[in-house]
Simulated scan of single mutants.
Amino acid sequence: MANTLMNRNDFGMLDPFERMARSFWAPLENMDQVLKTDINETDDQYQVKVDVPGIDKQDVKLDYRDNVLSIKVQKDSFVDHEDQDQNIVMNERHTGTLQRQYMLPNVAANKITASQADGVLTITLPKTQPSANDGQIEIQ
């Protein structure tokens, strides 16, 4: 509480330099809330590995449309640690949705496979051959 009072001026506002520092570091404070991903590409496939520790596979939704792989994870949990006398030792609540999207072109969408083991989601996306004309249309 003393630190909070020391960071306020006579108007009850945070010091402007403190506000600037907090806004500067804010994007990095939730780095653990990101779906950490590795993507490997070979000539015939992409392999995507996503860390999803503690997430059940029914809480993961995958979608591939318009050359974009979308991953959505819904996490709802409540862990309540109490002793016999109802003295709360610790409460932790985590809830929220994490989403990531990756542009992965030329994928055979009907051949995509996914598995989850040891907290890692592995998605294999077999490639198709890109069209030979690269989207160019000849006018006749």
Rank of each mutant, 00 (worst) to 15 (best):
Tyr46Trp: 07
Gln47Phe: 06
Gly135Ser: 05
Asn133Phe: 07
Val107Arg: 00
Lys111Ser: 07
Asp15Phe: 04
Ala117Arg: 15
His81Arg: 13
Gln101Tyr: 09
Gln140Asp: 14
Ala114Ser: 14
Met1Pro: 04
Pro130Val: 00
Tyr102Ile: 00
Thr95His: 11
Glu41Ala: 11
Val50Tyr: 00
Leu28Ala: 14
Gln136Gly: 11
Leu125His: 01
Lys57Asp: 14
Gln86Phe: 12
Asp38Pro: 03
Leu69Gly: 02
Leu28Cys: 13
Ile88Cys: 12
Asp59Asn: 15
Lys49Glu: 13
Ile55Gly: 05
Met20Lys: 14
Thr128Val: 12
Pro16Leu: 03
Lys75Arg: 15
Thr95Pro: 08
Ser77Pro: 15
Met31Asn: 15
Val89Pro: 05
Lys127His: 02
Asp56Thr: 12
Asp80His: 13
Lys49Met: 11
Gln33Tyr: 09
Thr128Glu: 08
Arg65Phe: 05
Pro130Met: 00
Val79Cys: 11
Asp44Leu: 10
Ile39Cys: 02
Gln129Thr: 08
Gln47Val: 15
Met13Arg: 13
Gln45His: 09
Gly54Ser: 11
Ala109Asn: 07
Gly54Gln: 12
Ser70Tyr: 14
Met6Asn: 09
Pro126Trp: 00
Met20Arg: 15
Lys36Tyr: 10
Pro53Met: 04
Lys57Ser: 14
Glu41Asp: 13
Gly119Arg: 10
Ser115Gln: 09
Ile123Lys: 00
Leu125Met: 10
Gln101Asn: 14
Val120Glu: 04
Asp38Trp: 05
Leu69Val: 06
Val79His: 13
Asp43Tyr: 05
Arg19Pro: 03
Asn67Pro: 06
Asp76Gly: 14
Arg19Leu: 11
Val48Gln: 00
Arg100Gly: 06
Tyr64Gly: 06
Pro130Phe: 00
Met20Glu: 11
Ile137Arg: 12
Lys127Met: 03
Gln45Thr: 03
Ala132His: 08
Arg22Asp: 05
Ala132Gln: 10
Asp66Met: 06
Asn91Thr: 15
Val48Ser: 01
Ser23Asp: 11
Met1Glu: 09
Pro130Gln: 02
Asp59Pro: 06
Phe11Cys: 07
Val107Cys: 02
Asp76Asn: 15
Pro130His: 00
Pro53His: 04
Asp56Lys: 11
Gln99His: 09
Lys111Ala: 10
Asn106Val: 00
Asp32Asn: 14
Lys127Gln: 03
Lys61Cys: 10
Ser23Gly: 06
Trp25Gly: 03
Asn106Pro: 04
Gln140Trp: 08
Asn7Thr: 02
Gly54Asp: 10
Glu29Gly: 05
Thr122Asn: 03
Val79Gly: 13
Asn9Val: 05
Leu125Gln: 01
Thr37Arg: 02
Leu5Gln: 08
Leu14Gly: 02
Tyr64Trp: 12
Asp51Pro: 05
Met103Lys: 08
Asp63Leu: 14
Val48Gly: 00
Arg100Ala: 06
Val50Gln: 01
Asp59His: 11
Asp118Asn: 15
Leu125Tyr: 00
Val48Trp: 00
Asn9Gly: 04
Ile71Arg: 02
Val34Ser: 11
Ile137His: 08
Gln136Tyr: 08
Asn91Gln: 15
Val68Asn: 09
Ser23Trp: 11
Ile55Val: 15
Asn110Met: 07
Val107Gly: 01
